[in-house]
Amino acid sequence: MAKGVRPRVKVPGSASAGDVITIKTLISHPMESGQRKDSDGNVIPRSIINRFVCDFNGENVIDVTMEPAISTNPYFEFQAMVPEGGEFKFTWYDDDGSVYEEAKSISVG
């Protein structure tokens, strides 16, 4: 597991039924591209987050496949429909097999 990986998400706490809301996500991760060399000239192996998924109440909002050209500390902003109250689930998949998860509830009133 890459060191100091910490997911964070920004989701409004509440919305009206049927609203489209903006979600922002950021996860601290070096996204080592596999293109760099260390001071001895050896290639530093690739180590990135290769997939990010957001679901709402078990249904998919967005599913992103990621390559080394995504910047350090990957950031995504996207829109989601909120037909009812429930829970957003966020999952990041690391090259090394680690999975980072975060969840945020939203109420509809």
Partner: peptide, 25 residues
Amino acid sequence: NPSPDVCTFNFGPMAGAQSASTRIR
């Protein structure tokens, strides 16, 4: 870029819009 792939956004049924932003190298 040395490798041209950056990312692919797949929009699910709960997407509020088929739009997305990110930061790239």
